[in-house]
């Protein structure tokens, strides 16, 4: 694959980087990333990955754009209200970069469809807003041996961690075991979230995907990165793999995907506390 002059210009700031170069840019163009959730986290991640020239981007979300989304879900505009989020996101990505092929999944991710969707992608971003989805994505990625980046945001806080199969690193369930009881953690509809937090954490997820695809740098594996926006404080929490983990441990007890019950107040959508 030879670059056109237009591509050389578009990706010049990447190609100049020693860690990316021509080879890295070709890896991005030949790479694929699935973004689950076209909301707060998925918006910046999708925009930057499309701009970076990731050749195939999948985006999954069952919702339509709501006025309360626009404070942080920057891939959608006021003119997109009531439009399926995946369609709005697809239009934004294609407008930024015609090199990108976008596949949309206007559907809830559940145990009966997730394996079929993730199989086509090199890397998966969890941009969901609820614990059932987060555990489902984790378990599916562990079972399918897919690398993924978990993230969550609430109020002025955010966190993320990357999982890579066969790397002796913890999965999300090694760290968090089970979804919290209903209403133990407020949704962002209840608790609020600062819009820029979605930008910061979503961009960090995009960075993880770019590093995974190009092989540049170090991934955030075995480490949970937390960010406190009020104090402007990043913390790196080193976490070990749990040999007794129910899904990735030596003797897993979870061998089939689970659809946990959704907390009532959060709905089953991607936008409520993301």
């Amino acid at each position: 694959m030879a670059f056109t002059n237009e591509q050389l210009e578009r990706y010049s700031r990447h190609i100049i980087l020693n860690e990316i170069g021509v080879k890295g840019q070709k890896k991005l163009l030949n790479g694929s990333v699935l973004i689950i959730g076209a909301g707060g986290l998925g918006s910046p991640a999708a925009l930057y990955l499309a701009a970076a020239g990731v050749g195939h981007i999948g985006i999954a979300d069952a919702d339509v754009v709501d006025l309360s989304n626009l404070q942080r879900q920057v891939i959608h505009g006021t003119a997109d209200l009531n439009k399926p989020k995946v369609e709005s996101a697809r239009e934004s990505m294609e407008a930024i970069n015609p090199d990108v092929k976008v596949t949309t999944y206007h559907d809830f991710i559940a145990s009966d469809n997730i394996m079929d969707i993730i199989k086509d992608y090199d890397f998966i971003l969890d941009g969901t807003d609820n614990f059932p989805a987060k555990f489902l994505i984790n378990d599916a990625c562990v079972m399918a041996k897919k690398p993924f980046c978990h993230a969550g945001i609430l109020r002025f806080g955010g966190q993320l961690m990357t999982y890579v199969p066969d790397a002796n690193v913890p999965c999300y369930r090694c760290v968090f075991k089970n979804p919290p009881p209903k209403d133990a953690v407020p949704t962002c509809k209840q608790a609020g979230v600062i819009g820029a937090m979605a930008g910061i954490i979503g961009c960090l997820q995009a960075m993880e995907a770019i590093k995974y695809l190009t092989g540049a740098g170090e991934l955030l594996t075995g480490t949970l990165l937390t960010y406190d926006g009020l104090k402007n404080e990043f913390r790196r929490v080193k976490l070990p793999k749990d040999d007794h983990c129910a899904v990735c441990g030596e003797e897993p007890t979870i061998t089939e995907l689970i659809d946990y019950e959704q907390a009532e107040c959060s709905g089953i959508s991607s936008d409520d506390y993301k």
Binding site: L8, I15, I16, G21, V22
Partner: peptide, 14 residues
């Protein structure tokens, strides 16, 4: 000669 900075270097690098 048909491109401008920084694509000049990028094209040579490629």
């Amino acid at each position: 000669t048909d491109v401008v900075c920084p694509v000049t270097f990028v094209k040579a690098k490629v």
